[in-house]
Computed example of a mutant assay.
Amino acid sequence: MTKLSVNINKVATIRNARGGNVPDIVQVALDCEKFGADGITVHPRPDERHIRRADVYALRPLLHTEFNIEGYPAPEFIDLVLKVKPHQVTLVPDEPSQLTSNSGWDTKTHFQFLSEVLDEFNNAGIRTSVFVAPDAEMIEHAAKAGADRVELYTEPYATAYPKNPEAAIAPFVEAAKAARHLGIGLNAGHDLSLVNLNYFYKNISWLDEVSIGHALISDALYMGLEQTIREYKNCLR
């Protein structure tokens, strides 16, 4: 069964717009779990414009499902992850100023760097995932560097899906087959939504996990968080 991890960054963005603690990040995460989410994802950035380091520490002892921390492996990020010890860490190649993740790693060019970082996390008993484009060569080098999983960057799929679903999914199916052949796990994320998630899942049924934030939180404004999570879970059946 493919797991749904809810990225709560956007909830933190709303909180930070006014200061204080409304909405309460911890309570929202616990409610997501109660409503059926299989995990919680956070992406703490250096400027703390949404999730803060304090949020990460507050969440860890209270969550009952899988905790996934994603981010660029700068020294302060590595230190945070090693102290918190989430179930999974997802490495993304973001610059600190980026609005959102918009590309996968060039795992061939950055092979040595990724190998060293992955070794550190693997030795600490933290499952590792590397954010990549649907490219067999990038997946192969992620596996050789020591990644337990790759997370496919799905914005190109989401963009192309409305016009031609078959063409949109094709490179992702091939990438998913490459990951399966290499014996590593498979996650996916970025711009997956109620519109395109079920088709993605039906074509790549061995997907381990999807991480969804922006679309899910936006849908919750209309449907409520509980119903929204239920609808996303239904897309993974």
Rank of each mutant, 00 (worst) to 15 (best):
H141V: 01
A176H: 00
E155W: 11
L99D: 10
T128F: 06
R127W: 04
E140A: 08
Q98I: 06
V117T: 15
D94C: 00
A158W: 05
D119K: 13
L118A: 02
L182H: 07
A178H: 06
M138P: 03
H141S: 11
T159Q: 14
N187M: 08
D135P: 07
K163L: 00
K163M: 03
A176E: 01
P134I: 02
I126E: 03
L182M: 04
G146F: 05
E174G: 03
E116A: 12
I184W: 07
Y161I: 11
N123K: 10
P162K: 08
T100D: 03
P134F: 02
H110Q: 13
S103Q: 15
Q112K: 14
P93C: 14
N123W: 02
Q98D: 11
Y153L: 06
E120H: 04
G125L: 00
E155V: 14
E151V: 03
D148C: 12
A143L: 08
E137Y: 04
T100A: 07
D135Y: 02
G185Y: 05
A136Y: 01
I184A: 09
E174N: 03
H181G: 05
P96Y: 05
V130W: 09
L118S: 02
A145Y: 06
G146I: 10
A158I: 09
K163N: 01
V132R: 13
E174P: 06
L182Y: 04
Q112C: 08
D119Q: 09
A170W: 01
F113N: 09
R127E: 04
L114E: 07
P156M: 15
T107M: 12
S101D: 00
H181D: 15
H141F: 15
D119R: 09
D94W: 02
R180Y: 09
G185R: 05
H181A: 14
D135C: 07
F172N: 00
K108V: 12
A142Y: 04
L114C: 10
Q112S: 14
D94Q: 02
E174L: 03
Y157I: 10
H181E: 15
I169S: 03
N187E: 12
F113M: 13
T100K: 01
V130L: 13
Y161S: 10
A160H: 14
A178I: 01
E166N: 07
H110A: 11
G183F: 12
T100L: 05
N123V: 01
L114P: 02
S101E: 07
V150W: 09
A170N: 08
V150R: 07
A147Q: 08
A142M: 12
